[in-house]
Simulated assay, not measured.
Amino acid sequence: MKTLIVEDDFTSRLLLQELLKGFGPTHVAANGLEAVKAFQMALADKAPYDLVCLDIMMPEMNGQEALKKIRALEEEQNIFSSQGTKIIMTTSLNDPQNVIEAFSGLCDAYLVKPVDKAKLLERLDDLGMQY
């Protein structure tokens, strides 16, 4: 399972890397702009990410914007969100507006920080991920 962790907070980034390292390669991006570039490069190399863990509050480009751009990149390749990369929002924001916006942007799951390993694995199972 190839994973892109998009997180500007160093501690949160390390936690997610630690939780996911046993399941395959993990790459990191510190903001949404880096994430979109990394995602685009992986698509171009025909080696897309299986999972993206995406924070919302980040500099350069927030997670909501990055989510929309990532889904647009997939759509350009005729990849629909149901067959594309699984995207889990991993954020401290738990307000209805952000949750609704994320699902409207076609995220697959939403986890509130601090991310708990059991909950993360449960979401991966719900999404049918092979880890």
Rank of each mutant, 00 (worst) to 15 (best):
D95H: 14
L120N: 09
P25Q: 04
N62F: 05
V28H: 05
N78K: 13
P114F: 01
V112T: 13
G32V: 07
N78S: 15
A109R: 11
D95F: 10
L67Q: 07
C53G: 03
T91F: 12
V28P: 00
K68T: 10
L121A: 00
N78R: 11
A72F: 09
E75Y: 13
P59N: 08
N62Y: 07
V112Q: 07
L33K: 14
G105E: 02
K21H: 13
D95G: 05
P96F: 08
I70Q: 11
L93Q: 10
A30Q: 07
Q77L: 09
I79W: 08
A102D: 02
Q40P: 00
K86L: 00
L120V: 08
R71F: 06
D116F: 06
E60A: 11
A30S: 11
E65I: 03
Y110D: 10
K37S: 12
M41L: 13
I100T: 12
Q77S: 13
G24I: 00
K21L: 01
L20V: 04
Y110S: 11
N31E: 03
P59E: 04
S104W: 00
T85I: 01
F39L: 07
G105C: 03
P96T: 12
A30F: 02
L120P: 08
A42V: 04
F39H: 08
V99N: 08
V28Q: 06
L67T: 04
G32Q: 09
F103L: 02
A38T: 04
Q77G: 06
E34D: 14
L73S: 07
T26L: 01
N94P: 00
D45E: 15
L73A: 12
A109C: 05
K46M: 10
A72D: 02
S82H: 12
V36K: 08
G24N: 00
L19I: 11
I100W: 10
D125F: 13
E65P: 01
S82D: 06
A72Y: 05
K117N: 04
